[in-house]
Design a protein around this nucleic acid. Structure first.
Length: 207
DNA sequence: ACACGGATACTA
DNA sequence: AGTATCCGTGTC
């Protein structure tokens, strides 16, 4: 199980590091293939920018806590609170590759194609049965409801965040390279695997 | 292309 | 109370 210390780093590092991890949720499981980073300070797209309740949430909870909210009146979106020494924020879980519990997901979602079961932030919460009851829950306690470390270091692609009206140009969305289970195909194919040299630091001044 | 739907945070 | 906005999905 991924321990709390993992989430005690910057939003960008956590968002990138979760690609390839496995999310287990009761009888369901999936590989994280798409995330987005949100910075609690200065990021106009982060809830903390325009919601006092979100700022309070960051203050009152520790890293590794689930931040779940209802968007557009019908879709629950799963975020993980991260609190680094320099920066706080959230990681939005945007897509998973289904690994276990496919029958259960299909029952909840009423779609046949496995590719679309968890290809989107609202779709994966519906498939996993995640809703407002999860808001504020610790994701570092029960291994049955937690992230688990990836086996190998995956190839990761960074590009702009999607679905937001502001600050979408920031390359803060991360996808598993070549995955057919992402919500939106990456426009930019920069590989940003965690090497010490290369484009990663250059394109991510927030780090 | 558009309808669907509710919580949050504004204005008063 | 009324209004604007919002990290989306499915079907038109």
């Amino acid at each position: 199980m991924i321990a709390r210390e993992f989430f005690e780093r910057s939003p960008l590092v956590c968002a990138r590091g979760l690609i390839g991890a496995e999310l287990r949720w009761g009888g369901c499981a999936g590989t994280v293939v798409e995330t987005e980073a949100y910075d609690a300070a200065g990021d106009e797209a982060c809830h903390t920018f325009f919601r006092p309740s979100a700022r309070s949430f960051v203050e009152r909870h520790q890293a590794g806590t689930a931040y779940v909210y209802l968007n557009y009146g019908m879709h629950w979106l799963l975020n993980v609170l991260v609190k680094g020494p320099r920066r706080n924020g959230f990681v939005l879980i945007r897509a998973l590759e289904p690994l276990a519990g496919l029958d259960c997901m299909t029952r909840r979602r009423v779609v046949a194609e496995p590719r679309k079961l968890c290809a989107g932030p609202g779709r994966l919460t519906q498939a996993f049965g995640i809703d407002g009851a999860v808001h504020g829950e610790d994701l570092c306690g029960n291994p049955e409801f937690a992230f688990h470390a990836r086996q190998r270091r995956p190839r990761i692609v960074a590009d702009g965040r999607v679905g937001i009206s502001v600050a979408g140009e920031l390359p803060w969305r991360f996808t598993l390279a070549g995955s057919r289970f992402v919500s939106v195909r990456a426009r930019d194919f920069r590989i940003v695997t965690q090497k010490k040299t290369g484009t990663a630091s250059k394109n991510h001044p927030g780090l």
